[in-house]
């Protein structure tokens, strides 16, 4: 995790402040990588992703009318699967083509002792939502998550 204000590099994620909730932001050389990093930022709001064993996979196929809505759908799909399967995730693979996302999340059943999750994420919001190419080869995917 990078702290807000660190020098921007691709393949990084960070949190940005929000009064009540948490902003999650992923950077990547491609939209795919930025989306993966945004998911990692969300997981890092809950626990230390490095503590998650990559034992199970969950696959996703999503479609949205725009790239930024696809980001919110992706994060909300992860939130749903975490809640329904009682899982936490530690790694992600994303492929986006024409506002369609195919994703895979890797993780394991949540352990209250080993993961000590800090918060439960209720939903990804449209607040501070952006999924843009800041400069050639640097994509930024971000929004506020409600915790």
């Amino acid at each position: 995790m990078a702290a807000a204000g660190d020098q921007v590099a691709t393949g990084r994620c960070e949190h940005f402040p929000h009064d009540a909730d948490i902003g999650v932001r992923g950077y990547g050389a491609t939209p795919d990588e930025a989306c993966e990093q945004a998911a990692l930022a969300m997981m890092a709001a809950i626990l230390d992703p490095a503590t998650v064993r990559l034992e199970q996979t969950v696959d996703f196929a999503l479609e949205a009318p725009s790239l930024d809505l696809l980001l919110v759908d992706w994060l909300n799909a992860l939130i749903y699967e975490m809640a329904e399967r009682r899982m936490v995730f530690g790694a992600f693979h994303v492929k986006i083509e024409n506002d369609r996302l195919k994703g895979r999340a890797l993780g394991e059943a949540v352990s209250r002792t080993r993961h000590a999750p800090a918060v439960e994420v209720k939903g990804a919001t449209y607040t501070e939502l952006a999924f843009v190419e800041d400069r050639p080869g640097l994509w930024r995917a971000q929004c506020v998550i409600d915790v």
């Binding site: 809505l69 749903y80 809640a83 919001t125 449209y126």
Partner: peptide, 17 residues
């Protein structure tokens, strides 16, 4: 709990579109 969170998520999207 989760039910309210999911209702909020789904209807926000539906209302937005």
């Amino acid at each position: 709990r989760g039910l309210g969170h999911q209702i909020g998520t789904e209807y926000l999207r539906e209302m937005l579109l």
